[in-house]
């Protein structure tokens, strides 16, 4: 279990959309070595919270610090440079390109052609992609394959590989198993554990209770823009979580 100081701290974060309070004074922490599941009904504020963390939204109140640095008003690209990678449901991969090109998208490794023209070093990028996929224990038969020809789980792996290749120090995953078959879901859950074990904490948004129970160390349940409960995995069960989600648990707000 985590014993270190939190790597990410959100304190008193509020976000309004017109008259709607999307986040209401939210406190949220993530420490090294944990997988935190972020749960809640639709509209509970999970997505708003991760968008505030990744810089897509600016909170009206509150502070977000990462590794001791305040990042509340940083641009998304800056936050990504600091090591917070968000893997969205749609993965944001160029499916018409191969694995190496995707891992290096926007940051292509170049070499000189005839000592003169800068060309993309596809061989290097492919090899680096293989290394990082090996680290995650993922094997893709041909790395020259375009992503469109890979399975959903393999694409998910590519998205994760890209994040950790660029030294992600915190990975946020939005419904990573939603579109996958059962064997692939298992693979992705294994990936999440493997990320955690390599010192990269994960925030996992999921509706699938089974996934949450399988990988999370801690469950944060949101309801109507507030944190309704913050439970360790031990002792939590589906019934309790649902009660917190709908607001009928003992001591619920």
């Amino acid at each position: 279990m985590p014993s270190t100081a939190p790597i990410l701290t959100c304190s008193g974060v509020s976000k309004f959309f017109g008259g709607l309070t999307a986040l209401d004074n939210v406190d949220f922490e993530v420490s090294q070595g944990e997988v935190v599941a972020l749960l809640g009904d639709n509209g509970a504020g999970k997505s708003t919270l991760i968008k505030c963390i990744s810089g897509v939204y600016k909170p009206e109140h509150g502070q977000i610090t990462f590794n001791g640095v305040e990042i509340t008003n940083h641009a998304p690209s800056e936050i990504r440079d600091r090591g917070i990678e968000t893997i969205y449901q749609d993965l944001a991969l160029a499916e018409n390109l191969d694995v190496g090109a995707n891992v290096f998208l926007g940051k292509e490794k170049k070499k000189r052609f005839m000592g003169l023209f800068p060309v993309t070093d596809d061989e290097f990028m492919r090899q680096e992609a293989t290394k990082v996929l090996d680290r995650l224990d993922i094997h893709i038969p041909s790395l020259k394959q375009k992503l469109v020809n890979l399975s959903g789980g393999q694409r998910q792996a590519v998205a994760i590989a890209r994040a950790i290749y660029w030294n992600a120090r915190l990975v946020i995953m939005d419904e990573p198993t939603a579109a996958l078959g059962v064997p692939e879901q298992r693979k992705v859950l294994a990936l999440i554990r493997s990320l955690r074990d390599q010192g990269v904490p994960v925030i996992l948004i999921s509706h699938t209770m089974h996934d949450v129970m399988a990988v999370a160390n801690r469950l944060v349940i949101m309801r109507r823009g507030k944190v309704a409960a913050n439970l360790p995995r031990e002792g939590a069960n589906e019934e309790l979580v649902v009660k917190h989600m709908v607001g009928t648990a003992e001591g619920a707000l």
Binding site: A94, L97, F117
Partner: peptide
């Protein structure tokens, strides 16, 4: 070249 790679990437998934 990188310009070409980005051209394909934009066509494949502009959001990405």
């Amino acid at each position: 070249m990188q310009f070409g790679r980005h051209t394909y990437a934009i066509g494949g998934n502009q959001e990405a």
